[in-house]
């Protein structure tokens, strides 16, 4: 079933989806969508509500099986792979769900430790769990919340814990489902800075679903400055050339290209996701 890929291919292509189609009864949620992501690359997926953005991420994780099309994870064909193979593949993938998806019956520490303790392919020794959880929570600047439960945290903090849980396994690919939805602009920028920080410090491939054009703009034009511990405007090239934008409309991919191309689009639907961002 699996096509063995060369090491070079594995390094380059993290995720590839070809002709993905998914139908719910009479509704086509995704219609022949192609999507690929390489190491260190960022892809911003935009589209109106119900355009299939979240479903696309869930298919990439193997949570939903498409009706047609092929999925390759790290060069390995996964389209018809059994759940067990998916479990292994997911060890190298992190996901932040829309509302964080934290287990509300567990403490923050248990939440973040969950993938380390449950994904077999991660192979994390028992005595390393706690340090890694602390490290991941330090990363999102929530080191003091270990004993709390999700309901004690604010919406923004819950997303940050969600990010910590997504990156605690040091994945090569991180998927973010609307990380800034419903947050105030300041908290949203904090969250996006963390997304950039994860991308730039660990060189992970990033797929980000959003409906805020600022999010895409930020990832395309800013990088994480580890020395100063904050975002810095990138000097052209760099992350901008490695950031692609993708626009979905009712399950179809209607645009794929750079920020410049997105901003120069004259299409009425597409241009709504590129509202003249002025500095």
């Amino acid at each position: 079933m699996a096509t063995p890929a060369t090491n070079g291919d594995q390094e380059r292509e993290v995720l590839r989806m070809e002709g993905i189609t998914l139908r719910f009864d009479h509704v086509t949620a995704l219609d022949r969508v192609d999507f690929s992501l390489r190491r260190g690359e960022t892809c911003i997926v935009q589209g109106a509500a119900g355009s299939g953005k979240t479903v696309l991420l869930k298919i990439a994780l193997g949570l939903i099986r498409p009706d047609e099309g092929h999925i390759y994870i790290f060069g390995k064909e996964m389209t018809r792979a059994p759940e067990q193979d998916w479990m292994e593949a997911r060890a190298a993938m992190g996901i932040l769900f829309q509302e964080g998806g934290l287990f509300d019956s567990m403490t923050i520490e248990e939440n973040v430790a969950y993938p380390l303790e449950n994904i077999k392919a991660v192979h994390c020794p028992r005595d390393e769990v706690r340090p890694r959880v602390e490290e991941a929570l330090q990363f999102v600047e929530l080191g003091h919340t270990l004993e709390k439960v999700p309901s004690e945290l604010s919406g923004g903090m819950r997303r940050r814990v969600g990010i910590a849980r997504a990156v605690v396994t040091r994945p090569k690919l991180v998927l973010y489902d609307s990380p800034t939805a419903g947050l105030d602009p300041i908290t949203a920028t904090t969250i996006m800075a963390l997304v950039a920080k994860e991308r730039d410090t660990r060189h992970t491939a990033t797929a980000l679903v959003t409906h805020r054009y600022q999010d895409g703009h930020l990832l395309a034009n800013y990088t994480w400055d580890a020395g100063r511990g904050r975002l810095a405007r990138s000097d052209g090239g760099g992350s901008a050339s490695r950031t692609r934008f993708l626009v979905l409309c009712e399950g179809r991919k209607v645009f794929e290209g750079s920020q410049e191309e997105l901003e120069s689009s004259t299409d009425e639907y597409i241009s709504q996701f590129a509202r003249r961002w002025k500095e």
């Binding site: 869930k58 994780l61 997911r90 060890a91 998806g101 993938p115 077999k120 392919a121 849980r165």
Partner: peptide, 16 residues
């Protein structure tokens, strides 16, 4: 748990 995506999260994080 289902409507807050905790069930999805569980699968994504290595548990059936």
């Amino acid at each position: 748990m289902k409507v807050t995506e905790q069930i999805d999260a569980m699968r994504a994080l290595g548990t059936d």
